[in-house]
Simulated assay, not measured.
Amino acid sequence: MLTALSGRSRIAGLEVYVPPARLDTAAVERRIGERSPGFRVPKGLIGRVTGIRSRSVMADSEQASDLAANAAAKVLAECGLQTPDIDLLIFASASQDMVEPATGHMVAAKLGLGSPVMDVKNACNSFLNGLEVADALIGSGRYHRVLVATGESPSRAVRWTVPDFETFASSFPGYTMSDGGAAVLLEAADRPAADSDGKDTAGILAMGFTARSSHWSVGTLAAGGSAFPRDPEATYFSMDGEKLKEAFLDLGCGILDQTLAEADLQWTDFAVVCVHQVSAPYREIFAERAGVPRDRLVPAVEDFGNLASVSLPLQLRLALDSGRCGPGDLVALVGLAGGVSLGMAVVRL
């Protein structure tokens, strides 16, 4: 589904929170070996397959809501806003503190917000879909200023005791994952108009999303729902890597081409293209198939791991901090997620 948005909302603030504790890939392999009698990961395998050198790990006392609240507090401070200035909080994450209530309430309580809240969940595309919902609500006139926050805590779902290679392979996604939080403040943009250079004013200019939901079972974290309410085995990531690759091939890149065509853009028009990164090799494969020039990518997974829905805001924050993009530039946010789904946002900063 393609949605042309014409700058109804703009990004007024963006911040990321990465927990200070680090776990390098060699330590991951050692931990599996220490806790798995009779099984040992071939030395260097995880690093060779993923390209990941390190990932962040939240403290035992932290929850997903803490990661989101930390990032959101930074956004409020950056924008010089007080809690009454926020009209709506959307917690958009694959992770959650608990099934009930919505984690957005925990985030709001930690920030001291009195606004309405809601949760948006779609695996690693949760944050991108959160932006979509926020933009639509702002465009409708329902809210003026929406805080979209995510807190990803996948370290709580890693299987460290591995009996055999088959179990290791199905649990592999957990060894790539990283904890973190991010928050974006969206506010109503000026009425769409061109500036003196003929460019659109800052805002979310276009979005496009698609899904092939018949592939939902190839990657799961099943615990906590009605299917597996109390099964300890369902508390770990489980994925068939080959079937997931086939699922994304089935999904194709058509929605990206359509979104670019509708906006009359090419990849070379963007200062940076942030692509969800599950591993370094797959980032390169996806970019090649989608036609994204390598010099537009923002490598992040090597040093930060797979941050799920935090991946895109992290890359944009890195690009801003390094001077690769800034006010007036076009950026693209391209999300891939289990389920499976693919989405894209075109943003002028």
Rank of each mutant, 00 (worst) to 15 (best):
S170G: 15
T167A: 11
W160M: 01
N125W: 05
L137A: 09
W160T: 01
A169H: 13
V184D: 02
A169W: 12
A136K: 07
N129F: 14
G141D: 02
L131C: 09
A157H: 15
M177R: 05
V158K: 03
S170D: 14
F165H: 15
E187N: 00
V162H: 00
L137Y: 11
E187Q: 03
L185A: 10
V184C: 08
A169D: 14
F127N: 05
A134D: 00
T161D: 09
P163L: 06
R191N: 14
A134R: 07
P154E: 03
H144G: 14
V184R: 07
F172C: 02
P173D: 11
G174Y: 06
L186M: 04
A123D: 14
T161V: 11
L186Q: 03
G141F: 11
S140F: 10
E166I: 13
P173H: 05
R156G: 06
Y175M: 05
N122K: 12
N122E: 09
N125K: 08
E152M: 01
Y175E: 02
E132T: 13
A149F: 03
S140W: 11
S153R: 12
L185T: 11
G130M: 08
P154Q: 06
S155F: 04
F165T: 14
R156S: 07
A189Y: 06
V184T: 09
A188F: 10
P192L: 12
F172P: 01
S171P: 10
S171M: 10
L186N: 04
L186E: 04
S171Q: 07
E132V: 15
S171L: 09
Y143R: 05
V146A: 05
N125T: 09
E166F: 13
E166N: 14
G141I: 11
A157L: 12
Y143H: 12
L131V: 08
V146K: 08
T161C: 12
A193Q: 14
E187K: 01
T161G: 11
R191I: 13
C124M: 08
A136W: 10
T176I: 00
P192Q: 06
G130A: 06
A157G: 10
A193N: 11
S170F: 15
V133L: 15
G181T: 03
R156E: 06
